[in-house]
């Protein structure tokens, strides 16, 4: 089930602006990989290239090679919706569908996949909400609007929505930035569980979190504003946090950046 993600010379543009340049990295199946780096270094951009969400923005494009288990996801013949179904994504800001109930939000992806049976939908919704540590808080008000939840609850709702369709790779863009420490721990637990089946790539600004949850860590950085982001170092998390090969990585991790 879990897939290997390989990026080779990935470069992404916003119109004329080159946001990331020549990213090479391989994410092994059933691992958690953390992307860290200063703000604006292109972590989100890289993440969005992996499920082809980058190209949604007008003028945005990706060059280079991105494969999932050897299959080129930017191949002309590949159905982009199939790619996105296989590679789920949790965004930096919670974005539940404002017009939908909590339940409908969670099953939105299943409905898009053509699941109609009420019993299946209910079962999957409960499972996903439990995994996202939200079930107890919302089980009595599944029919209420998703936008009526707190920010942290909304983010967990979005996580539930993403994992309800059981994607093979889960991309998370700072999923915990709006969460309290308890929910954060719950999400981290969730990542440990998901790792059994899925490949997980997470962007985080929280060093402790990266150290806690990830197997491997990729450090991105930029020379100066306006320059494209580059991958500085990519290694086992343990190595990155104890004995990084690059001086820049060490500076960033110890808080001496910039």
């Amino acid at each position: 089930m879990a897939k290997r993600v390989e990026a080779a010379n990935v470069t992404a543009y916003y119109g004329g602006f080159k946001a990331i340049e020549n990213i090479n990295l391989t994410v092994e199946p059933k691992t958690v990989t953390a992307l860290i780096g200063p703000s604006g270094c292109g972590k989100s951009t890289f993440l969005r290239s992996i499920n082809r969400m980058h190209e949604v923005l007008p003028g945005a494009r990706v060059e280079g090679n991105l494969t999932i288990d050897g299959q080129d996801i930017y191949d002309r013949d590949v159905d982009v919706t199939a790619v996105r179904r296989m590679i789920g994504m949790v965004f930096q800001r919670p974005n539940p569908f404002p017009t939908m109930s909590i339940f409908e939000n969670v099953v939105a992806g299943l409905r898009l996949n053509g699941v109609r049976r009420k019993s299946i939908l209910e079962e999957s919704a409960e499972k996903a909400l439990r995994s996202a540590n939200l079930w107890d808080e919302v089980k009595d008000r599944l029919g209420k609007p998703g936008a009526g939840l707190s920010g942290g609850q909304q983010q967990r709702l979005c996580i539930a929505r993403t994992i309800a369709v059981e994607p093979q790779v889960v991309l998370m863009d700072e999923p915990c930035s709006a969460l309290d420490p308890i929910s954060t721990l719950a999400i981290e637990d969730l990542m440990f569980q998901l790792k059994d089946k899925f490949t997980i790539i997470i962007v985080t600004h929280n060093m402790q979190q990266a150290a806690r949850v990830s197997d491997r860590t990729a450090f991105f950085s930029i020379e100066k504003t306006g320059d494209p982001g580059r991958l500085i170092e990519y290694d086992n998390t343990q190595k990155i946090f104890s004995n990084p090969a690059q001086k820049k990585t060490e500076d960033y991790i110890t808080g001496r950046f910039g």
Binding site: N51, M53, A82, R84, R85, P96, F97, G109, L112, V165
Partner: peptide
Amino acid sequence: ANEEAALALGATRWEMIRT
């Protein structure tokens, strides 16, 4: 953000419009 949420779930453009 909502349009992207739908697209990221694998919606086609028309499905995105509907959701």
